[in-house]
Amino acid sequence: MSSSGSPPAPMQLCYENVNGSCVKSPYSPGPRVVLFAVFGCGAVLAVFGNLLVMISVLHFKQLHSPTSFLIASLACADSLVGVIVMPFSMVRSVESCWYFGERFCTFHTCCDVAFCYSSLFHLCFIAIDRYIAVTDPLVYPTKFTVSVSGICISLSWVLPMVYSGAVFFTGGNDEGLEELVSALNCIGGCQTVVNQNWVLIDFLLFFIPSLVMIILYSKIFLVARKQAKKIENTSSKTESSSGTYNVRVAKRERKAAKTLGVTMLAFLILWLPFMIDSFFDSFLGFLTPSKVYEIFCWFAYYNSALNPLIYGLFYRWFRRAIKLIITGRVLNNSSSTINLFSEEA
């Protein structure tokens, strides 16, 4: 009597006829197309959306402020995620293989970590900027100047790059995990493991700035609520132009804090699953399935594509700037002096 069971499907390898090749577990054609489309759209949005943010801030003189420069630098970090990190991670996630070499795997991982912490540090400095602007608006122009913003930007880039390089290019991330690394090591793989000591440092580097941002924005919104009530009580009593101007400035500062608070919240929501999983996974023996890990990674990556959408949703000046850029009006000699905050800009 013949067996009715079908023969097992032949095992696919990342590199056929190569000893030590990783096993390939690809998706069927339909899901592959969908995943490439979804991940590809995220990468394109991260690159071009953040590029629009950078062009807007750098071109229009009205946006040349300490906060805007921090936002432009944050957009640069998010744009680099779309250029250097997301396209190669897309191939790894969909094809379940790494085709770009071991050295580029280390460089890719280093950039991934560096850009993550660069975004986090930018958001933390933006929170400090907004806190001073809302709680002490009279002193703010002298406390948080363009030069101070430049120092914050430099720290937000240099510290994450030095840290990620020290962890991954020195091989310190897998000290004590030699057996696991040997078991995972195969041609066509890019699985970076991090020992418990570095995972704990990673978590603290993420948790402490996040806690600082949560505290600052909580205080900002309490102060903004008090200011709003005060403005409502005094705006009807004063009709002077200076009073009206101060009311507009106060409202603008509160709206900027609210929008950037949403940006911070989105960052935490999208990055927390990955950070929490990485922390506990290192202490539980790296039990997270690869597909679950990839899902957490892409939640985090999509944060880089989300920020321009938040700006477009909350910032009228950003929508006007995009319109001027897309229509080519930025090529006019006087375009850099256009008032983006006026009702008719």
Rank of each mutant, 00 (worst) to 15 (best):
R32W: 01
F36Q: 11
F274A: 07
S240C: 15
A266Q: 11
L155G: 02
S334K: 06
M161R: 13
P7D: 07
C190P: 11
Y15F: 10
T106I: 13
V193I: 15
S241H: 15
L272W: 06
E175M: 09
I151L: 15
K258A: 10
F206R: 00
C105Q: 03
L177G: 07
E344P: 00
L216M: 08
A9C: 05
F88L: 10
F203K: 00
L268Q: 13
L260R: 12
S336T: 05
T145D: 02
A127S: 14
F60T: 06
R248C: 10
S342L: 08
T263Q: 07
F341P: 11
L52Q: 09
S73G: 06
L13I: 01
V94F: 01
F274P: 00
I55G: 05
F144R: 03
R103V: 05
L284K: 04
K255I: 05
W271P: 02
G171E: 05
P31G: 05
S147I: 13
K219F: 01
Y245L: 14
A9H: 09
V38S: 08
G312D: 07
F107M: 15
V193W: 00
S149D: 11
S334F: 00
M11R: 14
T67P: 00
G285H: 04
M161K: 12
P31A: 00
W317R: 04
N50S: 03
Y311R: 08
P137C: 09
H122A: 04
S182V: 04
A300Y: 14
F48Q: 01
K230I: 09
R252Y: 03
P7W: 05
S147R: 15
C105S: 02
K226R: 15
V23Q: 13
L204D: 01
M11P: 01
C14D: 08
K219Q: 03
I276N: 01
R320W: 03
L120N: 15
S335Y: 04
V262Q: 04
R329E: 11
E16R: 09
C14N: 05
K61I: 01
Q62G: 10
R32V: 03
L272V: 06
K143G: 00
F318E: 02
G42Y: 06
R329C: 03
G189W: 11
A75V: 06
L284C: 04
C190L: 00
C297V: 08
N303L: 11
P31D: 05
V292Y: 08
I295V: 13
N197S: 12
F107I: 15
S242E: 14
H108S: 09
V53M: 07
I187N: 14
S236G: 13
G82D: 14
V134M: 12
Y311A: 09
N233P: 02
D202W: 00
P29M: 04
Y140G: 09
S282Q: 01
L120M: 15
S240W: 14
Y302V: 03
C41Y: 09
I326M: 05
